[in-house]
Design a protein around this nucleic acid. Sequence first.
DNA 1: TATGAATGAGCGTTCATTCAT
DNA 2: GATGAATGAACGCTCATTCAT
Lengths: 196, 196, 196, 196
Amino acid sequence: MTTSIEQDKVTDKRTVILQTTLQLLSERGFHNTPMSLIAEEAGVAAGTIYRYFDNKETLINELFLDLKREMLQHAMARIEPGDTTEEQFRKVWRNFFHYYVTHEDEMRFVEQHHNSPFQSGDVLAAVEEMYAPFANMFAVGVADGSFRELPMEMTSVYIYDVVLAFAKRQLSGKLKMTDELLEEAVQISWDAVKGT
Amino acid sequence: MTTSIEQDKVTDKRTVILQTTLQLLSERGFHNTPMSLIAEEAGVAAGTIYRYFDNKETLINELFLDLKREMLQHAMARIEPGDTTEEQFRKVWRNFFHYYVTHEDEMRFVEQHHNSPFQSGDVLAAVEEMYAPFANMFAVGVADGSFRELPMEMTSVYIYDVVLAFAKRQLSGKLKMTDELLEEAVQISWDAVKGT
Amino acid sequence: MTTSIEQDKVTDKRTVILQTTLQLLSERGFHNTPMSLIAEEAGVAAGTIYRYFDNKETLINELFLDLKREMLQHAMARIEPGDTTEEQFRKVWRNFFHYYVTHEDEMRFVEQHHNSPFQSGDVLAAVEEMYAPFANMFAVGVADGSFRELPMEMTSVYIYDVVLAFAKRQLSGKLKMTDELLEEAVQISWDAVKGT
Amino acid sequence: MTTSIEQDKVTDKRTVILQTTLQLLSERGFHNTPMSLIAEEAGVAAGTIYRYFDNKETLINELFLDLKREMLQHAMARIEPGDTTEEQFRKVWRNFFHYYVTHEDEMRFVEQHHNSPFQSGDVLAAVEEMYAPFANMFAVGVADGSFRELPMEMTSVYIYDVVLAFAKRQLSGKLKMTDELLEEAVQISWDAVKGT
DNA sequence: TATGAATGAGCGTTCATTCAT
DNA sequence: GATGAATGAACGCTCATTCAT
């Protein structure tokens, strides 16, 4: 019989493994982080990880998808039904930036994953699905003339890659994003994609 | 006596190793590519690689610096003394884009390197130096009012990260950059950074 | 829960590795004995050795110190508080001889170690400490006139190197040490170092 | 046609290789000295060594035999027909000591060789032969009562191993052999082996 | 469920030896 | 003869994974 307390224990152990993995992998890289180290830091036996994850690749991919999910939830924070497309766009921009800047480990891990052989078809498909709310926002915005008639993949550059680039510079100390600069950057992105 | 043919042989072997490394590492990642595989694909014995490179890290870093150099030379192609800052900016934008789109392996390799433990202080310093012409272009542009008074690290987002993002989408097939779209993208970047 | 049987298993595996190492290294030399061979002969996997010893050097040095300890304990066997310095000297002489003659592998291993790059500062310091009882015996003997006033390093030649030389000849079959010859040899050493 | 100058060149190259080998091996040990390093230090190509020596083992063994020969010649220096057995014994003792103390590399190399897997049957047999003059001295000495009736292998301990032990202590700095101490040591050895 | 000792394939690297020039 | 680039077997060691307890 599984009581909810036992269930919690299980959840905890899984969560601890994931958190430890995130921290270690963002600091040390995927290939410089042995499973044995993750186990040690997580306070579990090496074999225990394999009760929750099939293998190292699965562990990494599940963590990646968890983080992507979390990241996109953050991006949609405080978006309200009545918001105009422009308001939504600006909020998402700032949300992304804020998330990255306050979640360096997550950002580093996700960026490492993007440039790695772990990016399998399954993972990419799962990520694709998560972007549905954004695809929707874009579709609505194009339909009502808020966005220019550009491919969504082009618009996304200004709300995803540009934001990421700013966040990285901020974290590395190369750039100090004041509120002013931030609003300039948001404005540039909005100008890039807004309808006429 | 060293004839030019013998010289060529030496150059060839080194070059073959570098090219094989580039191809394999861009496809399989740094840590999923054993030296033995590089040797096999390059058609040399495992030990031979070590005549030309001290170790795997050195091999990867020399390749990285070679590619960075090549990439930056491409970026400056057809820039002429008389060009205005705007003309220079647009040319560099298009040059970068063209280079990435036609050098997928190079791009993937360099991007992987950016998020890797191989980025040592020495390598970073060497790269820094290579960027001098761009730093200069920016300084001149700011001085004569062609560029807005923004931190260079901010301007670079629109001529480096944005271009890279477009190139990746183009290569992945998610976006088909027509000449028109390209010019729009260039225009957006220029609007983002130009002086008033 | 750790039962004593489990404990024994652990001890056994470590011990088996040490014994196998002793045998192989004394026969084949340090550099002609790969870790893989030690593993094979010990009946464990190659990686298992590294659970018990950090690396080959550590394995060899720990074995060396273990053997030195054992050897010196043998040398002090049956020495009793009431023994005169002469009795002690003679007993130690015979004990050393007996130990070497009945522990050929140990002797060869230790001799190899003495002429090897494994003799690090740490090891030498540890050995130095083990010789304290002998240094003490010598100091007392000099003080009470039992030993001549010679540097200890000179006295040690007649109780260490000479014994070793005899043991080697005995083991190689070049010399058959009868009890008579043995006592002659002891007498010669004693005459060499005794006080007047 | 081989002129004597060419012959000298050949001799020189062989000699240079042997000398370089001696120096490097005594300093770095047999297995920490690659053939390529010997070649480099000797100023010849790696392949050249193989014109003079079949392989590394042969090189080492030939060097060993050369040194043994040289060492034994030194040991017999200034021995004259009219010398008594005692005079001969004392001269040889001092000669050996002097040789070791002034030829540290040679001593270290030879000692390493004694405790190594290079000691093959062939080498041992060759060494055996070299000792003939000493065997003869001993036979004569026993016959005329100068030496005790002991196995030669026992006598040799006091003129070989004991001397070596003193030389090592002197070279390591543990013992400063004054002329007085030296003569005491010689006397002890002579007392050990002289007839009644 | 959880453990962690044990496994062994696989890695980066070295170096004695060969052989085309 | 002499060279030194090239070879490739072999080494020390790591670590993802398994499984008896």
